[in-house]
């Protein structure tokens, strides 16, 4: 087969689309669904800018076919804010100054979300280990670590 019809849920909304089997999940999100929050950095698994959650787990969407997401629940940065209210992680990133150019931020937020689901009260060491797949060229990481600790202290739903 060269095209396939897939059903995916993205940020709670169901989509049914016919796509080429050679389309990556990243291209599907950006080009088919116009969800451009998820970034294309290296296209080879190194940078983490394309990180999204597939059934709650962080993956590089550049290294996954859209058709491999058939039946899955995808969560992207666009799903974080609810009715104009920012997610605690987003609040904390602003508060701690964890964003400079912002290119890594959507991927960082997705990895951070998965991290808080796994460790609701993470240590700085756990944060650095779980975020090893997200590269930031601007902040030097310190403020990102602080932001995630701050978000965990806000003690709301991770």
């Amino acid at each position: 087969m060269k095209t396939l019809t897939i059903q995916v849920t993205v940020n709670g909304e169901a989509f049914c689309k016919t796509v080429g089997v050679n389309m990556t999940l990243l291209e599907f999100l950006r080009e088919e669904l116009h969800l451009t929050g998820t970034k294309l950095g290296c296209n080879e698994g190194e940078c983490g800018a394309c990180t999204v959650l597939v059934d709650g787990k962080p993956v590089n969407s550049c290294l996954m076919l859209a058709v491999e997401a058939d039946g899955a629940e995808i969560f992207t940065v666009e799903g974080l804010a609810k009715d104009g209210t920012l997610h605690p992680l987003q609040e904390a990133f602003i508060e701690a100054g964890a964003v400079q150019c912002g290119f890594c931020t959507p991927g960082m937020l997705m990895s951070a979300k998965a991290l808080l689901d796994k460790y609701p009260k993470p240590t700085a060491q756990q944060i650095r280990k779980e975020l090893e797949g997200n590269i930031c060229r601007c902040t030097g990481y310190d403020r990102i670590v602080k932001a995630i600790i701050l978000a965990s202290e806000m003690n709301k739903e991770g």
């Binding site: 698994g45 983490g48 990180t51 787990k57 590089n60 797949g133």
Partner: peptide
Amino acid sequence: VGSVQIRQR
């Protein structure tokens, strides 16, 4: 191996 994302797949 790699990162969480890589190990997940």
